[in-house]
Design a protein around this nucleic acid. Structure first.
Lengths: 217, 217
DNA sequence: GGCGGATCAAAACAAATGTTTGAAACGCGT
DNA sequence: ACGCGTTTCAAACATTTGTTTTGATCCGCC
């Protein structure tokens, strides 16, 4: 009835709200951002959230949905560009992994990547009707396509393990992308041997880890 | 002053509180458990939490600390039992991985394992003074010892990557242990090909994944 | 110009939370 | 039996949260 009343995209207030939500959610997590912080940052009234979205949760879901949609679309396109011909299995696998990781850790996705990962983790730990719907609509269909591609380049992997390893791969990427401090920990772990690495370095290390895990058997 | 007044372990109310906290936190996450739920379950008064622990956060930290301590102690002992002699690198590595995973997914650790993982994830996403202290006190020192063991059985791994891969390994284990639904997803991913797996099966699949990721290069 | 719906803003609202209070109940040594 | 420190309890408290309400204002249109 009054939920999700008129969240057209071409609306100043709506887009200001979503922009502010993205930034704040990424920095603090949606749990720790009150509507008053959010609307104050967006420069709109507190009531605007409920007026346009119906509830805070609906706004959260809207942000989550947009990011998820974009990530899946990007990856679908990149996989299509990759084509069918498989020259070297290992490098093809690496390309596949890079495509998956890119929306999270790739260049230009600093904010949205972290946010997307946080949303995903929250869905895993505390699924709601909304996040479940988004997962079913976007992530699961894409997951099937992606797993099919994995199968092509990992023939030595037991069929069951394809699913398992896909799951573990996703898990690793999520938490590794969700928070920068999880990467700064590398400095204390190595006793300073590795100084806090650049974003690009982190992604390379993650790709190596995942390729190694998925190849071989 | 009045914080952490008298949380002796040999106290009926205190242990009742911690037991209820463990169960509820594991099921819903500490964020989603109110003091009234908690104390009602424990059969004590609401004020008992503040009386004995000083605050809800202090109680949370106490639970976290105990579990972390136990996990590290267990692993230290098992590593010592493993001894120095390395006959087969691969199986030694596998044993090491199993030792790490056990407090999270091993038999008998159903509740505490999930809880510990949830705490750890929360610390990563939203560190506090308390969780940082616990990490510094227990996890980081143990991490150094464990990484040293890893180095012995992964000589082909570039020294820098030892730290990275350790970090990724921990991440994978955490999120994979934190929620059972992350494992039930395997059923929808495989299109029903794999029915929801037993806890033991999951652990085996995770061990395969990690060993594969850590060996080779 | 004036009507009517869309949009906004300030305030009020209800519910939940962690925390504190003050008094009653208890345990126990003297 | 008394006194005293500790523990327990119900109630109140202060604060924050998301949400709703009530008008005021804007803008297009007959």
């Amino acid at each position: 009835m009054n939920v999700q009343r008129r969240n057209d995209m071409n609306n100043e207030t709506v887009s200001r709200l979503m922009k502010a939500a993205e930034e704040l959610f990424a920095e603090f997590g949606h749990e720790n951002v009150s509507l008053r912080q959010l609307t104050s940052r967006a420069g709109v009234n507190v009531a605007a959230v409920n007026y346009y979205f119906g509830s805070k949760e609906a706004l959260t879901d809207a942000v989550f949905e947009r990011l998820t949609q974009e990530a899946c679309a990007y990856r679908r396109q990149k996989i299509a560009e990759l084509g069918e011909e498989i020259e070297d299995r290992r490098s093809h696998l690496e390309a596949l992994v890079r495509i998956f990781v890119h929306p999270y850790l790739g260049e230009g996705n600093e904010v949205s990547g972290r946010l997307l990962a946080r949303f995903f983790l929250r869905h895993r730990l505390h699924p709601t009707e909304g996040t479940q719907r988004i997962t079913d609509t976007y992530n699961n269909p894409f997951a099937h396509e992606y797993i099919a591609e994995l199968k092509k380049v990992c023939p030595s992997l037991c069929p069951k393990d394809i699913f398992w390893h896909y799951q573990f791969m996703v898990n690793t990427i999520m938490i590794s992308s969700a928070e920068d401090t999880s990467f700064e920990r590398i400095e204390v772990l190595s006793g300073g041997e590795i100084s806090t690495a650049s974003r690009a370095e982190r992604m390379e290390a993650l790709v190596r880890f995942l390729v190694s895990a998925l190849s071989d058997g």
